[in-house]
Design a protein around this nucleic acid. Structure first.
Length: 222
DNA sequence: TAATGATCATAT
DNA sequence: ATATGATCATTA
């Protein structure tokens, strides 16, 4: 489909995907379906992007630049629990000290998200994965505060040259994990005395407890 | 068995 | 090299 020109048009198009299997959608779009994800980890996300007319490529922009909306698929179990963490963006390794929450890439990325839940229980092949009910989301005040707190803690460590102390155990809702082609990749980072050092690239990921919070608010508000 | 650390494909 | 799209696979 062509680029959606309004939020409403995007939401309508997304809603029409609900209930389709990846096999269904791939057939409609004349796309080949991989037998497994081992060498096609981003295939599902790309398929949804294609279906909704998201901008192609790897530009550091929202998927729908004109609408300011980011697209994220979310693998869930039959009971609606997220099955994986959600990658958001790479971490600022060399200019963490110049970052603020208000100007951060993470806040910008999560300001407006079209979540597309996908039933992805183990045993389901890519073809068998089934698209759930997509929904538009903006972080609530409580959610933004939770993200900000973790982001500040993690970004402070990077800014203060404590990258060697950084691991995925830190952060309640947000964590930093490796984000690279392999474990040998190194990028410039800030060392203990403010000097340049080489370190493994990291990315910000949403823990499943955070995406579970989003799903709860969306589907079981109290 | 959930979570962490590692990895795969493609585009720029 | 670094951004995009994520899931894999080993650990705890």
């Amino acid at each position: 489909m062509p680029k959606p020109t309004s939020i409403t048009q995007l939401a309508d198009a997304a809603r029409d995907l609900a209930g389709l299997s990846f096999a269904d959608l791939a057939q409609q779009l004349q796309q080949p379906v991989p037998a497994d994800f081992s060498r096609h980890k981003g295939w599902g996300g790309m398929l949804i992007e294609l279906a909704l007319g998201a901008s192609a490529g790897s530009k550091p922009e929202p998927d729908f630049p004109d609408l300011g909306v980011e697209l994220k698929t979310l693998p869930i179990s039959a009971t609606g629990q997220p099955l994986e963490t959600t990658f958001v963006c790479v971490a600022p390794m060399t200019d963490a000290c110049q970052q603020t929450w208000q100007t951060s890439a993470l806040r910008k990325k999560l300001a407006h998200v079209l979540w597309v839940p996908v039933l992805a229980d183990k045993g389901l092949s890519p073809a068998q994965r089934q698209i759930g009910s997509p929904f538009l989301w903006r972080p609530s005040a409580a959610q933004e505060q939770a993200l900000q707190q973790d982001w500040q803690e993690l970004t402070d460590l990077l800014a203060l040259g404590k990258i060697q102390q950084v691991n995925a155990h830190l952060g309640e809702y947000l964590q930093l994990r490796p984000k690279a082609a392999n474990g040998k990749i190194r990028t410039q980072a800030i060392g203990e005395n403010g000097q340049q050092v080489w370190a493994q690239p990291k990315g910000f990921y949403l823990r499943t407890c955070f995406t579970s919070w989003i799903l709860r608010e969306q589907f079981a508000p109290n």
